[in-house]
Simulated assay, not measured.
Amino acid sequence: MVPNYQRIVVFRLGRVRPPKGPGVVLILPLIDQWQKVDLRTRAFNIPPCKVTTKDGGLVSVGADIQFRIWSPVMSVVAVQDLNASTRLTAQKAMTHNLSKKTVREIQTERLKLAEHLSMDVNEMTRPWGLEVDRVELTLESVLKGPDDSLSGPVIMPPSMPGLEGIAGPIQQLAMHFLGNSGVSQPREGLGDTVSFVDEQGPPASAGVKRVSVEELLAAVELRLSEQLVQQVGACFQFQILRDGLVNNYFVDLSKGSGKVGAGTVAEPSVTLQMSEEDLLALFLGTLRPFAAYTSGRLKVHGELRTAMKLEELVKLIRPQ
């Protein structure tokens, strides 16, 4: 008798059979071998481990992970010890991802980092018939502060004529797309999060700001043309992760003069899934599409060749 939350994987003369249950299951003695699989959500804890961050800091970080089995047969056939393998995979993915972040990003963006970690672990454990439902990072302590020489804000140059009344990050983006050679570009190796400090404004407005996706798309819309559509010829659907939610945007360069906006399109050429920071980094030139894809930060649904046309789009929009 198999309860509703379990399944039985049967091997008949060494060959796996479809999972059986719930309810009454008949087993042939001496011919069938069987194993129970629990489909309920389980959890485990990754004990705090030391991680050296991108800016030279040292932090102690742990995680709580919840997972469930969606394919009983794969969970039995693909891996010998499912719990141990999942724990080791999640721990390695956590240390690998956090080593690419700064101490400040780990402190302030744990929810987004947990989303990226969940996606990375799912990619590795999906062939095992396992799915991670929730990841929660716990920052125990900062054992060593970051090296000051490896971090620092990007200083804005004097205001461009005609843009004095525009807010700091929007002005920076406008100057970037208008081809002002005096705009300071983000230095390589400082991460994919771009921050701006407006030293020309009053002290009360100075601080770290970010360009939103909507502001970026508004700047992209100014560069649309029929020539751009002829060179790219594809419709990109973006699924952007922001604060645990998926926001949809599109850049349609398949007909006319092209258009951009929020929402979904009926038949996109390719669908791209990434975080908001990674999308901004792509268009600001600090992250290349192929590097984002190979590192798992860019998820592609569709033809990869079409997805890589995004790099051509970025080159045409961004001044060289």
Rank of each mutant, 00 (worst) to 15 (best):
L304D: 04
S225P: 05
L178D: 14
L143H: 01
G263T: 09
R87M: 11
S275Y: 07
V314M: 12
V314F: 03
G179P: 02
T95Q: 11
D278Y: 08
K54V: 00
L284S: 09
Q230I: 00
T138H: 15
D32E: 05
V37M: 03
D278I: 01
Q172Y: 15
Q231C: 01
K101A: 14
Q6M: 14
S254L: 14
Q6I: 00
G233E: 05
D252F: 11
P153N: 12
G256C: 04
V79K: 04
E131N: 13
C235K: 06
T52N: 11
S181W: 00
V73Y: 04
Q200C: 06
I69G: 11
L39V: 02
V51Q: 04
A281M: 03
P268I: 10
R126E: 13
S71G: 07
E277P: 03
P157L: 04
S295M: 08
P153W: 11
L137I: 15
R297A: 12
Q227M: 03
G23A: 06
M156K: 03
E214I: 11
C49H: 04
M156G: 07
S257K: 11
D81W: 08
L279N: 08
A266E: 15
R42W: 04
S159A: 11
Q320E: 14
R305A: 15
P289S: 08
L88C: 04
I31G: 01
S151N: 13
R223P: 02
V79A: 08
E164T: 14
G21H: 02
I106Q: 00
E277R: 14
N97G: 02
Q66M: 13
L150A: 10
I170W: 03
V197E: 12
V135P: 09
E226D: 04
